[in-house]
């Protein structure tokens, strides 16, 4: 019976955490009007969450595109279909790899940093200090980070896909001799704005919400010690990665049925 009790305890604990995370999300959303009055807070977070993640996303996008170009050419040329290399690269990036890999990189770079920062603010009593100064820390500290994450993710994913397409072009056209006109023309005619691009954007917005929510919640809920902050950052990366991969399957099944 012990296992049943353990299962019950864990179930209750999970439900309680989900409840607290939902309440935190509501509290952050209630901070939106205050954020509109102070757009500077959002700009600061866009710099920290978005701009500082550009480099790792850009470099990864180029390399992923180059690998797609190489692998795509290798397989497609066996069937004499290397002319469709541009479509294959673009579709893979826009539909899947752009949103998913960007979200994984975001969780590793910006998400973990966000958890650590919020956790340390808690450990050093900065959040309590704000409360005692009659400033709501959820509105002042958390809401700008949430919105910055939601805005940044689709932009980063778009950049990842664009640079990936150029990476594929460099390898396919520049190194392996695929016709340049065919590479771009096939892509232009086969990639659909709604089915491919818009669905990719929707995915990255969903991933932006989920990854940032997880990062903020883990930081805000962490045990305020060095070990607690360390566990929060680890959990952020693990939970975000699993959530992104799981949600990607669900969203793909819904969008491309």
């Amino acid at each position: 019976m012990e296992w049943l009790a353990t299962l019950g305890r864990r179930g209750l604990s999970l439900s309680a955490r989900l409840g607290r995370a939902s309440l935190l999300m509501l509290a952050m959303l209630r901070g939106l009007p205050a954020l509109l009055r102070r757009p500077r807070l959002l700009l600061e977070q866009l710099l920290s969450v978005g701009v500082l993640t550009v480099l790792i996303v850009a470099v990864s996008g180029i390399f992923v595109g180059m690998v797609l170009g190489l692998q795509g050419h290798y397989i497609l040329s066996r069937f004499g279909a290397e002319a469709t290399l541009g479509v294959m690269v673009a579709a893979s990036l826009v539909r899947e790899l752009g949103p998913v890999v960007t979200a994984l990189l975001y969780a590793g770079r910006a998400g973990s940093a966000m958890s650590a920062e919020i956790g340390l603010m808690k450990a050093t009593e900065q959040l309590s200090g704000l409360e005692m100064m009659a400033v709501n820390p959820e509105h002042r500290v958390l809401t700008p980070r949430l919105i910055a994450g939601i805005i940044s993710m689709p932009l980063l994913a778009a950049m990842f896909s664009v640079l990936g397409v150029y990476g594929g072009w460099f390898v396919g056209v520049g190194l392996l001799g695929v016709d340049e006109g065919t590479y771009w023309a096939q892509m232009q005619s086969q990639i659909d704005w709604n089915d491919d691009v818009l669905n990719g954007v929707i995915k990255s917005v969903v991933f932006g919400v989920v990854c940032t929510w997880i990062a903020i919640f883990q930081g805000y809920e962490c045990v305020p010690t060095s070990e607690g902050v360390s566990r929060a950052t680890t959990r952020t990366v693990v939970h975000s990665s699993l959530a992104v991969l799981g949600l990607d399957f669900v969203l793909t099944a819904m969008m491309f049925d």
């Binding site: 009593e125 200090g129 704000l130 409360e131 005692m132 009659a134």
Partner: peptide
């Protein structure tokens, strides 16, 4: 919050915004 504006608190760590 209005009441807290009339209360100051000095935390053990200082709690300065870093």
């Amino acid at each position: 919050y209005r009441l807290r504006m009339r209360m100051g608190m000095l935390f053990q760590s200082g709690a300065l915004l870093t």
